[in-house]
């Protein structure tokens, strides 16, 4: 017993001799801060509960969801993430709803809290480059989010495996992994947006509220606005097919300005292999097509624009916050 304790001690002593790069030191500290914070514990509790709930509804309705002539019949493991009986939203809907909240919660006080505590001046007088601070904040939050979502996704898979008793195929497994990566990217977008607000606003409360306002705008009001616009512009049913298609494409283009629209399109495609188009299809395109699942590569190709869009949004908000932060003059408090 005491031998074991001693060996652990010498081990830590040995690792303690390693000199870490300052960037790593900051990331480690930020990650520790996140994990220890009440905020994170509460978020984890909410998200774990909702995934449990969605998993429960998915499992309860699993037998009805699998139909004999379903082209996706071979992919029923993926249904764990998408099916619902209407009382509880599915796992993907939960992620698209709560993911932004997670991102916002981990980023809204990234920079301004350092100002308010007066630690920014002290940090910047250490021998580190200024961008280490903002980069490390982003990296730490992203690492925490990735670990959490990855664990959550794999746990849902594991639970599903226990209850259904049929293991997922390699293809299904890869689809779920891509879905998790996509969710991480989606949360990263909201994380960067809230970091941007934390650079812009001195008060963390203002930053949090503005980020939540953007989130609410996109998830509640923007679809309404798009509806209003498109309703007034809608062509009659007698209009030429080109007009109808052009209009439909215009409507989709407007909707695709929403990050949540991009996310839901991408997840639908990944988790429902029979989806073969996200836009309008003409009868000509449909005729002769056999309803069958797409291979993973084709599904990925189809969501590539959506992924690029989300990545672009993430990068743009990060670049703006980076530039603003680097140019700001730092005074104590």
């Amino acid at each position: 017993m005491s031998n074991a304790v001693v060996s652990i001690k010498t081990k830590t002593a040995r690792t303690g001799e390693r000199i870490s790069h300052p960037f790593r030191v900051i990331v480690e500290k930020e990650m520790a801060d996140h994990i220890r914070s009440w905020r994170f514990i509460i978020l984890i509790a909410i998200i774990a509960l909702t995934s449990l709930g969605s998993l429960y509804t998915a499992l309860a309705n699993f037998s009805q969801a699998v139909k004999p002539n379903d082209p996706e019949g071979t992919f029923f493991f993926l249904k764990l993430f998408t099916i619902t009986d209407g009382t509880m939203p599915s796992f993907t809907v939960f992620i698209s709803f709560l993911g932004p909240l997670l991102g916002i919660a981990l980023g809204f006080d990234a920079i301004n809290s350092e100002h308010n505590r007066g630690t920014m001046g002290r940090m910047l007088s250490q021998p580190i480059h200024r961008d280490y601070i903002i980069n490390a904040k982003f990296t730490a939050a992203l690492a925490v989010i990735s670990v959490m979502l990855m664990a959550l996704g794999l746990l849902v898979m594991g639970a599903g495996l226990i209850f259904i008793g049929i293991p997922p195929t390699a293809g299904e497994f890869m689809r779920v992994v891509f879905f998790i990566l996509l969710s991480i990217l989606y949360v990263a977008f909201w994380l960067n947006l809230s970091i941007l607000f934390s650079v812009l606003f001195r008060q963390p409360a203002t930053a949090a509220l503005s980020a939540i306002a953007v989130w609410l705008f996109f998830s509640v009001f923007y679809p309404l606005i798009v509806n209003l616009i498109t309703k007034s512009l809608a062509p009659s049913e007698m209009a030429a097919p080109q007009t109808i298609i052009a209009f439909e494409q215009f409507r989709l283009a407007l909707l695709r300005l929403m990050p949540n629209q991009l996310f839901s399109e991408a997840t639908t495609t990944l988790l429902m292999p029979s989806v073969r188009s996200l836009g309008p299809l003409t009868m000509e395109q449909m005729i002769g097509a056999l309803p069958g699942p797409l291979p993973l590569g084709q599904s990925l190709l189809m969501v590539w624009p959506q992924v690029t869009g989300m990545a672009a949004g993430t990068i743009i908000s990060f670049v703006i916050s980076y530039v603003l932060f680097m140019r700001r003059e730092i005074r104590s408090r």
Binding site: S20, P22, V25, I26, K29, D33, R36, R117, G118, T119, M120, G121, R122, M123, S125, Q126, P127, I128, S332, R333
Partner: peptide
Amino acid sequence: PEEVGFYDDLTGMENLVYTARLN
């Protein structure tokens, strides 16, 4: 600085160790 700030949820020792490791 005039009003030096520390991470309030860390101990004095932890704050110092952090600075030392950054150096």
